[in-house]
Design a protein around this nucleic acid. Structure first.
Lengths: 221, 221, 221, 221
DNA sequence: GATGAATGAGTATTCATTCAT
DNA sequence: AATGAATGAATACTCATTCAT
């Protein structure tokens, strides 16, 4: 098991560390068996805790799942922010964010699986993922590069495209072509013509950070 | 409960009628409680059967869910075929199919709910839905109206857009604007510029059948 | 499946043939899965009949099991009688019967398995098997070759030895040495000294029929 | 219900005591209804526990049955060891063990019933019972009182004789004559002549402990 | 805070048995 | 006689949740 969130909690109090351990364990078990088939006892056991302990930290499995997806989303957002700190073009940020999000979720396979499943269970999760994009889209609109009205439905449509791409690649493995096509589809839905979309994706591809092994950006850094 | 599939089976043997009753009941219960929370006993009881009878017809809940989703998909496909028998333009067919599919699934709310949930549980279902579109897309390509390579990933992206739109409207109710935007997004992903997409959707909107109350096209006709 | 008892019933009326088919099927299923795990539906299906038909012939699974074990016991007895028609020494008859019984039950493996299981479920079966020996033991007593009082307990002890030997060889396969030791143990319990027992077994081994392939004696003859 | 194994576990932790209670209850229910007809819920209820608790201690009914038979076998072995601590002649030990085993199993009727049934379900149990005798038989061989090769088959034959005797007396009640005959049969199979066997049984009968009420040797002592 | 034994409600699943055809 | 759909009682088994230690 990756002890990702437990390590993040080092330095926090004991309560925080135990909580982190449960989340780490939950991500693995949810990824392996899916939410419904995962049992609280197993998650606790894998975290090295007794089942009773679980209830000192979470009300039920739903709360844990929400916390797990939230923790993942938060971490991905943190990585993206770091990656894109120097990017000012909204459109470029959208492309980089889309492709970096997919890469991260594929590199940490359990993260991807949990996100896909939670996305289905509660559109909430997708919204969260896409909401992250809202500001970049608004930036691009302000920069006159896009001409759309930004609302929840638009972000849901973008989220759906990204999640479908994530699901496919979790099943079949990373495919450069699908990454590019997904980014182009996102831009097309955002109102660019196919040509423009293609050009933007090409140019963003030159962004140096996209070439990095994204696992370098994880908590250990 | 709608006795849709039971009525379809009138004239069939007893076995077929009982099977139809179980599917009708299952669609309602799945729609109301979701797959996981639905219990076989309840489905059987609502169908007016004892729980044991269920097992004379289906191996388990999964098989029933697959059969239910299949029956719905089959019926929707039948309606669409009927609706569009006179349409020859591939692009028009795509627009009409997209919007008619959404309308049908919203009009028979349980159908929509079952499709959305099954779509998540097994991409299969989505694939099935989208696969229906494959021939129309290929027609449009042959007619030089679209320029894309048709593959599974493309259809999944389209399916994702449609399912997200379906989910939103199942939650908030039918919204003409979302129907139109969904159709446009589908065409954009298929490579039309926003302007072309908009024009095509406008023109297809004049197709007389789109104005019909689609419930008229169901089995009772 | 061996169609042993169905063939025996050729010439009988239809009722008898169906009954025979059920018994054939039951023997196979009982042998494969054991009495408890065997289901009436499966037995009927393997007999090529519907489950309802079963109840036209037997009250329940117990009755069928009794009929099956009875049919087997009857057939084995028939074979033994035929084999030993020319043997007059009681002791020799005991040795030949013991070893021929084991051989037959090993050669028709399902028979052996059914006998062993029924023997456990109802000592009845064992009694039946051993009861067959009673007259031979009494003959040997009358011939002054044995000196025991013949009662139910004695026959049960003999039956237990034979069934244990049968079970061992059903598990490990036929073993000449175990056949001989079983016969000697039977004779020892009947009051012969080890030396006498050994001598009798040696001499009976010369009985020509013991060399035969016992499958020749089955119903097709 | 006899609270035999629960009392044995006094002093152990709670887990051990609950386990003991389940075994006590199981022995009674198995004895009354047989393995197949016994239901886990009933066993738990009679132990004063909820059915769910059962699964904290045993995987399924088979595991419980094995544990029950094992506990009985262990206790009987303990009693026999105590009884025979001063006996040095292998042959005498065999006689005393055989008859004391039968007495114990008859005195604690449920034990006897469980042993008989488990013996049939899994020869294992019988082997275990007989395996106990192996060392005594080997001692007797070393003392030149017996002349046999000791192997699994021999012990199975002895076990079969003892179990058949046990079954008969569980049905009809204790019978001194059958005890003696069983011991003699055991010795005969072990290679003594009827005369020798009879003499040995007579002499062992004088062993003072055989006269005791064996219930005195149980855990309460 | 952590433990883990006990709980018991809830569900799937099997299968002997019935009976209208 | 045979069929096979329907029945429904019976039971194993899981697992979230509680609580005394």
């Amino acid at each position: 098991m990756e002890t990702y969130f437990r390590r993040l909690a080092i330095g926090e109090n004991k309560r925080g560390r135990t909580r982190g351990a449960l989340i780490d364990s939950a991500i693995d078990v949810f990824a392996e068996k899916g939410f419904e088939e995962a049992s609280i006892s197993e998650i606790a056991a894998i975290a090295g805790l007794s089942n009773g302990t679980f209830y000192n930290h979470f009300k039920d499995k739903n709360e844990l799942a929400a916390a797990s997806a939230g923790a993942i989303a938060f971490e991905i957002a943190r990585c993206l922010d770091e990656l894109m700190s120097d990017l000012e073009s909204g459109v470029s940020r959208i492309v980089v964010a889309t492709s970096a999000f997919l890469r991260l979720a594929l590199q940490h396979e359990p993260w991807g699986k949990v996100l896909v499943e939670q996305f289905q269970r509660r559109p909430v999760a997708a919204a969260a993922a896409a909401r992250y994009m809202r500001s970049d889209v608004e930036t691009a609109v302000a920069q006159r590069d896009l001409d759309v009205t930004v609302d929840g439905f638009l972000l849901e449509q973008l989220g759906a495209l990204m999640m479908a791409a994530l699901r496919r690649q979790l099943a079949d493995g990373y495919q450069e072509a699908l990454m590019r096509r997904t980014c182009e589809n996102v831009l097309r839905v955002l109102g660019l013509t196919p040509k423009q979309a293609s050009r933007e994706v090409q140019s963003a591809a030159r962004h140096p950070l996209l070439g990095l092994d994204l696992s370098l950006v994880d908590a250990s850094s």
